[in-house]
Nucleic acid binder design. Structure first.
Length: 498
RNA sequence: GCACUCGUAGCUCAGUUGGCAGAGCAGCUGACUCUUAAUCAGCGGGUCUAGGGUUCGAAUCCCUACGGGUGUACCA
């Protein structure tokens, strides 16, 4: 740490020197006439008429050479070289220039020109410090070889990149793209849904009861009310209340919180799109999902084909729709359609699938699917008609009391969405939740709770409804070709450092 | 949770069989009035993640802890 102290001390000394010279290292005012990109876009014209410009940005390279010096300044738009000459800026300003460190924010008043070596630059008339950097940033250098940018000493430590995201963004500008694309994707989701008449709503993050998904919640406490509250694990039960209230098409994009393990597909807080539509069912939700994902792909990337992990994935309609039972049979030859518990248990035992005490045949079918099928679903696939046992909010499939109208969307072996024809029969819904409570009593910590207020709402009447949930982070991962959710969340959850 | 793996200067990394902790960049001093991974000369900078053990001697071998990654389990 001695070294760090020295590096910090040096910068503070420079700060002191500037102050002694009467220079404010953190002025309140600055001026900019051009973004750097504008300079690049108008190079010929600006060079010809020696365009006067004032640029601002961070000094990220410096090559001083006696009484002349070069630097590079970056703003959000781009990066350009500056040329600072003693004879032009004068003795005092040149002293200031010499006291600059990499990472300082500066303003350069000057004019556009081309150096002897042919590089388009800003010839400084004055260099003004806008914000002193008191801590050294790692230096990443770049060199263009055969038109390709080669980077040296890249800031690449994954842990540091996540913990100090600002450095990652600053030093690895290509990583900013993930987050720009994330914003665009979410914007296109809204554009798409808004144009189809869905109303965006906001429902409570702090809930007295949690529901709508299988997950353990985060618990918090409200002082004045003197009650525990839960951070939502889903917004489902609130959005359905809105359908009772007469809204016909609603959606919410927001953070949900699940108190579970973390890995490259799971962050404790994550962004979920949930959508409910009256007078619709899960088939409509499949159509909608296809249209929405294709809209995103085409409007942002101009194509309905994407590459992920060297696999070409076609988003063109229609996506495969196959039942979970058919897929299992396809992969394993095992026919579970009779829901014969003993037979299914035997199959699980033979294949070393854990049989939890609370699991029935439906749960085991889901386990078999995970074990044998999931990873095989590379191209977009709607896996449909799930066991009723594992779907307490989904409506039974006509003609088969073991199944419900539900689908999960899989792409490249990962789950992206979950949807069903929603239960609007309050009696059925109560029975399903009561069955969940029994599981809970048997030790299933993720089983659903009974939300009496929600059941009461259903009793007033809810229209037949299709509901959909899409994992937004995963969608962003897909479109940005990332295999870790931490790459698409600006500040992913990390263990505290020792 | 379990398994494997990594942790050395601000950053990127090397470190042989267990034998004086290194390089480049960044920093500091000096030279240089058109450089661009600027160059040249010199200098400073380390609790080798932490703690314990083996050993004459540990960055290196062993154990434990912490942190990261990967896989697996869990997770709609």
């Amino acid at each position: 740490m001695e070294n760090v102290k020295q590096l910090l001390a040096v910068r503070r000394q420079k700060l002191q020197k500037l102050i002694e010279m009467g220079v404010d290292p953190f002025p309140n005012k600055c001026k900019r006439t051009h973004k750097i990109k504008t300079l690049l876009d108008n190079q010929k014209e600006y060079v010809n008429k020696q365009q006067k410009v004032i640029i601002t940005g961070r000094l990220d390279a410096m090559r001083r050479q006696g009484k002349v010096g070069f630097g590079n300044v970056s703003d959000e738009s781009s990066r350009i070289q500056i040329f600072v000459k003693y004879d032009i800026v004068g003795e005092v300003n040149y002293e200031v220039f010499k006291l600059l460190d990499l990472g300082d924010f500066i303003q350069v008043d000057g004019e556009c020109f081309v150096t002897k070596m042919g590089e388009y630059s800003v010839k400084a008339k004055q260099v003004t410090i806008l914000g002193k950097s008191l801590r050294p940033l790692p230096t990443v250098k770049e060199k263009v070889v055969d038109g390709k940018v080669q980077r040296y000493d890249e800031f690449s430590d994954i842990e540091l990149r996540y913990r100090k995201r600002y450095m990652d963004l600053l030093l690895n500008p290509q990583n900013k793209m993930n987050f720009e694309l994330r914003a665009k994707i979410i914007r296109e989701i809204r554009t798409f849904l808004d144009s189809r008449g869905y109303l965006e709503v906001e429902t409570p993050v702090l809930q007295p009861l949690y529901g709508g998904a299988f997950a353990r919640p985060f618990i918090t406490y409200h002082n004045t009310l003197d009650i525990d509250l839960y951070l939502r694990i889903a917004v489902e039960l609130y959005l359905k209340r809105l359908l009772v209230g007469g809204f016909e098409k609603v959606y919410e994009i927001g953070k949900n919180f699940r108190n579970e393990g973390m890995d490259r597909n799971h962050n404790p807080e994550f962004t979920l799109l949930e959508l409910y539509q009256a007078y619709a069912n899960y088939n409509d939700m499949m159509d909608l999902t296809e249209d929405m994902v294709i809209h995103i792909a085409k409007s942002i990337f101009g194509t309905d084909t994407i590459n992920f992990q060297d696999q070409e994935i076609s988003l063109a309609k229609p996506w495969r729709r196959a039942s979970i039972l058919d897929l299992i049979e396809e992969e394993t030859g095992f026919d579970a359609s009779d829901f014969d518990f003993e037979k299914i248990k035997a199959f699980c035992k033979k294949n070393e699938i854990t049989i939890y005490p609370t699991a029935g045949p439906g749960k085991l079918i889901e386990e078999i699917f995970k074990e044998f099928v999931e990873a095989k679903l590379i191209q977009p696939t709607f896996v449909i008609d799930f066991p009723k046992e594992v779907s307490p909010l989904a409506k039974e499939k006509p003609g088969n009391p073991n199944l419900v109208e539900r689908f999960e969307l899989f792409i490249y072996g990962n789950e992206y969405g979950n949807a069903f024809t929603e239960i609007n029969d309050p009696i059925d819904q109560r029975e399903r939740l009561e069955a969940q409570m029994k599981l809970r009593e048997l030790g299933d910590t993720e089983a659903n709770l009974i939300d009496e207020d929600f059941l009461e709402a259903l009793e007033y009447g809810m229209p037949p409804t299709g509901g959909l949930g899409i994992g937004v982070d995963r969608l962003v991962m897909l479109f940005t070709e990332n295999t870790s959710i931490k790459e698409v969340i600006l500040f992913p959850q990390m263990k505290p450092e020792a």
